[in-house]
């Protein structure tokens, strides 16, 4: 019984351990909204460990940038202003969602172009196939007669067996 209780407590503690590395203790009682802060740092890439967001990374630079983001929010800057601050220094690469501009058109619209091309190809193939079927010559009178004879035969065969 005691063992079970301690196990349960261990599981309960384990499940509430924050998944964030290197999270600073910020004071969110002022004008900085905690949810807004967390949402923003999760959208920004850490350039040191590139597959981690600013929220996840334990790199020194990520720590500094989280402090910076918090400070900017405290000064009352909007999300756009803070994103601009980061992009003007580190480039579009800091954004997990790249902006739509001429150099990213291929990225954003490429899949739709491919889809359209695929649809066109499908349409063309279907149309060709239909034309092919229609252009095939029908049965000649002799063949027609033979088909009817065969059909009748099998029908009468069935009746005989029954």
């Amino acid at each position: 019984m005691n063992l079970w209780r301690s196990l349960l407590i261990a599981i309960a503690i384990g499940s509430v351990t924050p998944a964030w590395a290197g999270l600073e203790a910020f004071d969110f009682s002022g004008n900085v909204n905690e949810d807004r802060y967390k949402e923003l740092i999760a959208e920004v890439r850490c350039l040191v460990c590139q597959n981690q967001s600013l929220a996840d990374s334990d790199a020194g630079l990520a720590h500094d940038l989280r402090m910076e983001v918090y400070k900017l929010m405290e000064q009352g800057q909007s999300d756009e202003q803070i994103i601009d601050f980061l992009v003007s220094r580190y480039g579009d690469f800091v954004l997990y969602q790249p902006p739509v501009k001429p150099s990213t058109y291929l990225l954003w619209y490429g899949p739709f172009v491919l889809l359209a091309l695929g649809l066109l190809l499908l349409l063309r193939t279907l149309r060709q196939r239909r034309a092919q079927i229609q252009s095939e010559p029908g049965l000649s009178p002799e063949e027609q007669q033979r088909v009817e004879r065969l059909l009748n035969e099998s029908d009468s065969g069935k009746e005989e067996r029954q």
């Binding site: 350039l47 040191v48 630079l61 500094d64 940038l65 910076e68 220094r89 580190y90 480039g91």
Partner: peptide
Amino acid sequence: GIDWGVYG
């Protein structure tokens, strides 16, 4: 360093 976009 941040102002100059230094990341490493």
